[in-house]
Design a protein around this nucleic acid. Structure first.
Lengths: 243, 243
DNA sequence: CGCCCCCTTGAGGAGGGTCAAGTTTTGTGG
DNA sequence: CCACAAAACTTGACCCTCCTCAAGGGGGCG
């Protein structure tokens, strides 16, 4: 069955063994497909009674806007990720989500989720695991903004993205496609776009990593890991159910 | 009953109306009291099968350490806050928690929580609200590190703390006791301790706010809100049950 | 063809870091 | 209650990251 190969199934399956009936319940969640176009927000701050989504294809970002008009990107979402999982349980969204590429996503209501959880508690565990991992990524991002300099931040970011994409089968041995502009990287990493450009050039010049024309290539993976102080522990985060 | 006045009951009660039986279930969670001393971590990274706690009195902080030895404080915990709520559902903790003052906290196991939730679903909703608010605070903190300068960051931080303390009855009209050292502020705000000192002096010199000898006093609250671009929306975050 | 977005590079400046030295407050033991 | 040590706070001088401003080039699309 095709949906058993969905990015979400792939991601959850890497940490919790899912039975065929778990997978069946999971694929039921994918019925209401919706499509979104780049640059038109799909969820925005202050909106109430918001749906949540599971990304099937495409990239998106969640962000907040300051009074001054500056933007801080909190996280990027890739296939298999949940969008707005928190806003479905609570009344209003506290952030915006904007597609970066064309996005296909399945819409979920709170009752879809709750009934799926009742049918298979193991799936509930897996979804909680995913939510916990998302939170761990936000915390790691915060640590980077507070205590890493520009080049370490960039290296760490590119490595994290690689690990996430591999998990859903979207990265090859040592490279991946990445539709993010230098402006988006700047807003995610708390830098100016100009400095992002310089940092990328430095990584290239030092033979560590090349990001050009929408593709990231690791020229020296170990060197990059070392520079970034990258430790995958916060991503692997074994699930509570192993069997 | 005394526990009906606990900081946690006070906090949850501000957003979800809790019945007497809800409050009774809640107070059952406070049976196993434990005490911790400053500077000895109560939860640490990598530790498995960790308990969670509800703070009754005292202050603590959650933090991560970089390879280089630098520290980034992710959040502070005050009375009424949960500690390590995530680690109780998942196997290993991804951060450390250290008491700042003497801490009295009630230990909770996963089964304590789940059985309480079964007895009163409204309490489950309230706890989820609290967890969601904690996550919103982490996101707001991330935004500050990425896009606010030092003085805005400090102003925003002091205002957020004030709002949190008021909610549990630990702040007076325009001031509060605060046991945080300038070193801790530095590690939370992504600054050096020296610069924290200068920023505090600037706030004082400009007649906005005075932080001295463990006490924060707002000299010009509105001016500070304006400087910080502070918007309480992410804290108020109305619960899903109003009645 | 022209516009818009994105990338690139240079020059100059500001915010915040580091180092260093001195002062005040807090905590501990006698 | 005092003496002393350890933290915590304060301030100055200097410097480095990263920002801002500015200008130019490439590529995709209506």
């Amino acid at each position: 069955m095709k949906t058993h190969d969905s990015p979400l199934a792939r991601k959850l399956g890497a940490f919790v063994a899912l039975s065929n009936s778990d997978l069946g319940v999971l694929s039921d969640l994918f019925r209401r497909r919706r499509r979104f176009v780049p640059r038109k927000d799909m969820i925005f701050e202050g909106q109430t009674n918001q749906s949540a989504y599971v990304m099937a294809t495409g990239w998106a970002c969640s962000y907040k806007l300051l009074k001054t008009g500056e933007r801080q990107i909190v996280d990027f979402q890739i296939p298999g990720d949940f969008l707005g999982l928190r806003s479905v349980l609570f009344r209003t969204s506290d952030h915006n989500i904007q597609p970066i590429t064309r996005v296909d996503a399945s819409e979920l209501t709170a009752s879809d989720l709750l009934s799926a959880f009742q049918r298979t508690p193991r799936l509930a565990t897996a979804v909680l695991w995913a939510a916990s991992r998302d939170e761990a990524m936000v915390v790691e991002h915060l640590v980077g903004l507070g205590r890493r300099d520009a080049i370490e931040r960039m290296a760490h970011f590119l490595l994290e993205l690689y690990a996430r994409l591999r998990l859903v089968g979207l990265a090859d041995r040592l490279d991946y496609d990445c539709p993010l502009s230098q402006y988006m990287l700047a807003d995610a990493l708390g830098l100016s776009a100009v400095h992002v450009n310089r940092v990328l050039r430095q990584l290239r010049d030092e033979g560590l990593c090349t990001f050009k024309n929408g593709r990231v290539v690791f020229d020296n993976y170990d060197g990059l890991v070392d520079l970034a102080g990258f430790d995958r522990a916060y991503l692997d985060h074994e699930g509570p159910l192993l069997a």
